[in-house]
Design a protein around this nucleic acid. Structure first.
Lengths: 142, 142
DNA sequence: CCTTGACCTGGAGCGCACTCCAGATTGGAG
DNA sequence: CTCCAATCTGGAGTGCGCTCCAGGTCAAGG
């Protein structure tokens, strides 16, 4: 309950063993406890951090910034304001990212609809340009 | 109207000059027209492709796959089915990507709400674990 | 003409985030 | 005690997508 072997930590976090070691090596994950023989024992606390890192990584935060956050957390409670602001700024970037992704997804869907209107392989080069798309796009990418 | 200098193409597409040259070099963008002296002249058609590449790139398609798509388009109308399928599969991946991003964004917002409930730097280590978050997360990342 | 800023080429280098490797050690099952 | 799968370390290598550079060439304004 209180300690996980590396393989188990990897399984639970979804990170590879190498990545776990790498995260510790670069000081993202704080020094992990060891057995007498030197093998890692991950705690629930470590696992909690890994869940957070996954969240931040999946939303595109660079490792350097995650490390900054982790560093702040280790410094103590007087850094909560800075940590909160760091997360807020990141959340804003994620929002922007989501808007862009949605826009480009819509664009992509329109492209697909263009293909779906084709009678499945016909017509040499006579299409009306889709609204907002240059004729070239319909021609080349169509 | 029909021809753009490299700098203009870069401005309009949002790609750097180096990236435009790179895309041509690796065969993503078809050979661009040249002046007698060898300088590139981008057409509206090229620009259309660049818009598409931006869409695909922004949605996370690897260059190899974009190149495959471009290759198919160059091969002619008999590849429309394969192109459509390629885009559809990609769109599905984008949907998955959007779902993941949304999930992790929600997670992030919850983390931020945790910070917002703190009276701005107080309390040693006595919090109730947020639902679904291991106590460790609230502790370490909180 | 002449200048000068934009452009050319081939190829090296970079930043990120891992991933892999060799060779040694550990530790639980039998 | 033996075995062997899991783990350890330091460091090299990988893949992606550019980005930069040196050393020349081109072309439009004055």
């Amino acid at each position: 309950m209180t300690g996980y072997a590396p393989a188990e930590a990897a399984r639970r976090s979804g990170f590879s063993l190498d990545t776990l070691r790498y995260y510790e090596k670069i000081g993202l994950l704080a020094d992990v406890e060891r057995t007498a023989g030197g093998q890692r024992v991950f705690t629930d606390d470590d696992l909690g951090w890994l869940v957070l890192f996954r969240c931040l990584r999946d939303t595109g935060m660079p490792i350097a910034q995650m490390r900054r956050y982790a560093q702040l957390a280790r410094e103590g409670e007087h850094t909560v304001d800075e940590r909160r602001e760091l997360l807020r700024r990141h959340a804003e970037q994620v929002e922007e990212q989501m808007r862009l992704l949605q826009r480009q997804y819509d664009h992509l869907r329109e492209k697909i609809r263009f293909y779906e209107r084709l009678p499945t392989a016909e017509q040499p080069t006579a299409e009306q340009p889709t609204a907002g798309q240059p004729a070239a796009t319909a021609l080349s990418g169509g």
